[in-house]
Design a binder for these strands. Structure first.
Lengths: 195, 195
DNA sequence: AAAAAGAGTTGATTAATATCAAGCGGAGTT
DNA sequence: AACTCCGCTTGATATTAATCAACTCTTTTT
């Protein structure tokens, strides 16, 4: 079957095994779609209609402030979910943009289909609960970093926890993700290398 | 029955109505406890064993850095839950302290009892899912603020979204919650008043 | 009642990071 | 192949917020 990575993901996060029939139902509920580099999956002002599972490629979710500066809130690569869950849940227009950083392939689930699946496939609510917990923990960690650490410490923490990101995304995006300017990140790295 | 505020809370967040029997079971599963001002509910290094529902009073959750500076991650007042969920879920020692900011009364649930309730009272998983979602959205908002806004903008946002906190907690705690020093917050407020 | 501790303000100085500006080199486009 | 754009670096300067220090006013403790 195609998209085995989604199956593996759900099995892993739900702590159970999907039957072939269940997995087939999940695949029926979603739509595969490709995005070219720089193509939008969500634009600020729209309500987020889809939750996307990344099969391959990479995405970023970011806001743009009054001065036109982008602030990246989330980075996602294959085997991650992408969406503005606030907008999707509350049905409010999103403040964020989501676009492809590389040519990518995703599976799109509308919120309704996703709710159906959560109601009918036992593994799904387990996976969702687990996912929400992980999301919460991750954003609490980043909040802690952002409140109590210096730019350099935040960079080193990212280097430890998500080295993949550093290889996968250009440095200016990493800078934005860390909440510093590209110049500052460049200097931080120079300093870190000297040690 | 006592502790009606918990019942109201669960009804509201689950979108259903607890029966008297269900609510009685919930009350049996927890332990009421009082905390004096400054008393710890959790100390850094311990595994967080309880999830607490605040009946009255106020708590803060914070880390202490190498220089001894406190960084407040969460503030909670009556009708909020308090716990380090990361520690409680992962069973890892917490990096955070939780202590009472005022004399307070809470209901303590051990993680096991909470899991029992989630498994046996239908309203509970609904409430938990809703709570996780809200927590995630709230921490994403704060993360966004902390990455893209200046200290002054963050203060004004708090003034809009959680004016209660400003009345309830001393200014140095608000400063820590916003990620600035008390001196800086004092100057920000002075400036904001002049307008 | 006196003393001590805590909370907030204000001023002077320092440190961290942003901003502005210039230049380099590679990737993609025509 | 030439050209343009983009990502990255480096330097000089400006801005923001932290730090250090002093002082006032409450609140708490003795």
């Amino acid at each position: 079957m195609p998209y085995e990575s989604l199956r593996t993901y759900i099995n892993q996060y739900s702590g159970s095994e999907l039957t072939d029939e269940e997995f087939a139902r999940i695949l029926e509920a979603c739509t595969p779609r490709k995005y070219r580099k720089k193509q939008y999956l969500l634009q600020a002002g729209e309500v987020c209609k889809y939750v996307a599972f990344v099969i391959s490629g990479a995405f970023r979710m970011y806001s743009v402030d009054d001065k036109g500066v982008e602030h990246i809130l989330h980075l996602s690569i294959e085997n991650w979910w992408v969406a503005d869950r606030e907008s999707a849940l509350m049905l409010t227009p999103s403040r964020y943009n989501i676009d492809a950083v590389e040519d990518s392939e995703v599976l799109l689930f509308t919120s309704e289909k996703m709710q159906d699946l959560v109601a009918t496939v036992p593994a799904m609510p387990k996976m969702m609960a687990r996912l929400d917990q992980r999301n919460f923990i991750a954003s609490q960690k980043r909040l802690h970093a952002s409140i109590s650490l210096t730019a350099e410490e935040r960079y080193l923490e990212l280097l430890n926890n998500n080295p993949v990101f550093l290889q996968r995304f250009p440095q200016n995006m990493i800078a934005s993700y860390l909440g510093v300017t590209p110049e500052t990140l460049s200097r931080i790295r120079k300093k870190a290398l000297q040690k």
